[in-house]
Computed example of a mutant assay.
Amino acid sequence: MPKYHLLIDKYINSTISSEERKELEQWVLESDANRSFFKNRIKESSRRTSIDFDAELAYQRFSESLKLKKKVRKPLSTLLKYAALIAIVMSVGFLAKRQLLTNTLKTSIEVVENEEKTLIDNAIVIKLADGTTKVLNTESKEAVTDANGNVVANKGKNSLVFDSAKESVNKNPIYNEIFIPNGEIFKLQLSDGTLVWLNAGSKLRFPQNFDNACKKRIVYLEGEAFFDVAKNKEKPFIVNTQEVDVKVQGTQFNINSYENDDYIATTLVEGSVSVYETRTPENTMQLTPSFQANYDKFGNNFIKAKVDVDKYTGWMQNRLVIDNLKFPEILIRLERRYAVKFVNNSESLNDELYKGEFVDEDIASVLKTISMSTPFNYEINQNIITITE
């Protein structure tokens, strides 16, 4: 019997040879028990595969070929060619269907994953300390809860407030992370009362509560943010940007620290701050209002200058300030502000310097205005903008 198990499996998998098929046919014809066993094996095979394989039809085709042999004595070679053709057709159809279903399933998974990724990439997302991830609707007001259903923050329109009354006595703080996509600006109130405005394309890692046992209030920034720090002389507030730390007790300042930029700019509006290099804290600089510390990532040095702070904080009022920027730098800012992607095919523009200001204008108006000073063409296709000469 095990020998015929193997022959049946070969028949199902369309790997049976002509001689083996002839042997199997003879065995099936020997008794009703053999025919029943053969039929049941085909049914078992159909249950083991996820492909739509018609077991009854397979058996009928096999049995019909046997009936033809009884009724008509055709040359054996003709019958074998016919049987082989059926086997090949069934095999090709089976494999093609399996490949189609596999490709369809793979495509469906990729589409779903891409749609989910696109949704998250274009949304404000907060990841809580317990691993819970929430997509925040900028228009709605709702409570943000952790995995156990506990309310950790209350969301207003385009803002999120962490309750100061819920500060804990844990020895080590637990951190949340919030991600702001391109095209969005978001406001946070931390549990100590500090207000943070996050610009497009930014990420902030911050304690859910500033624990009483900790001597410092430390947050981690990638991107750009404006801080209005709640005063606490006993607990200095430190913003870490990987390469530069900003230490304050209570003040207002702006930090621009996008990963792809060549510099980190700290602009002081009110109070005083200490800005120092993370790796070498002795490389430090003190700022007073209206001064900016510009850290060169490649030169590892600070440049201090008095500036018009409105140019560096205007983004909170939807102002786009272009102050002696090269064309590629402008495109990067426009990508963040309007959530678009540029394809720049006009290299002759790269060394041009521009200066100007836009308030609440759409991307087409901005590009039209810039192109009036240095002519170029642009084509907007959804969120892809192609620049040509």
Rank of each mutant, 00 (worst) to 15 (best):
P2L: 13
Y4T: 05
K10D: 06
S17T: 13
K22S: 15
L24M: 06
E25S: 10
W27N: 05
S31H: 08
D32N: 14
R35P: 00
S45W: 12
R47C: 09
R48K: 11
S50E: 10
D54P: 15
L57S: 13
A58W: 07
Q60L: 13
S65K: 08
K67L: 11
V72C: 09
L76V: 15
S77T: 12
A87I: 05
I88N: 06
V92G: 06
G93A: 08
L95E: 04
A96H: 04
R98S: 13
L101M: 12
T102R: 09
T104K: 10
L105S: 11
S108G: 03
E116W: 05
N122H: 08
N122P: 01
I126N: 01
I126A: 03
V135A: 00
L136D: 01
S140T: 10
D146K: 00
V151H: 01
K157M: 08
D163A: 09
E167T: 15
S168G: 00
S168A: 01
V169K: 07
I174R: 07
F186Q: 04
L188R: 00
N199K: 00
G201T: 01
K203F: 00
R205Q: 10
P207E: 01
D211C: 12
I218N: 10
A230E: 09
N240M: 04
V244R: 03
V246G: 08
K247R: 12
V248A: 11
S257T: 10
Y263L: 10
S272W: 02
V275H: 04
Y276I: 03
T278Q: 10
R279T: 14
E282T: 15
M285T: 15
L287G: 09
Q292M: 12
Q292D: 05
Q292C: 07
N294F: 06
N294G: 06
A305E: 13
K306E: 13
N318G: 10
P328H: 07
I330H: 02
V343Y: 06
N344H: 02
E347G: 02
E357T: 14
V359W: 02
D360A: 14
I370Y: 02
S373I: 15
T374A: 12
Y378P: 09
I380M: 04
I380N: 03
Q382R: 11
Q382Y: 09
N383R: 11
I384F: 07
I385W: 00
E389K: 13
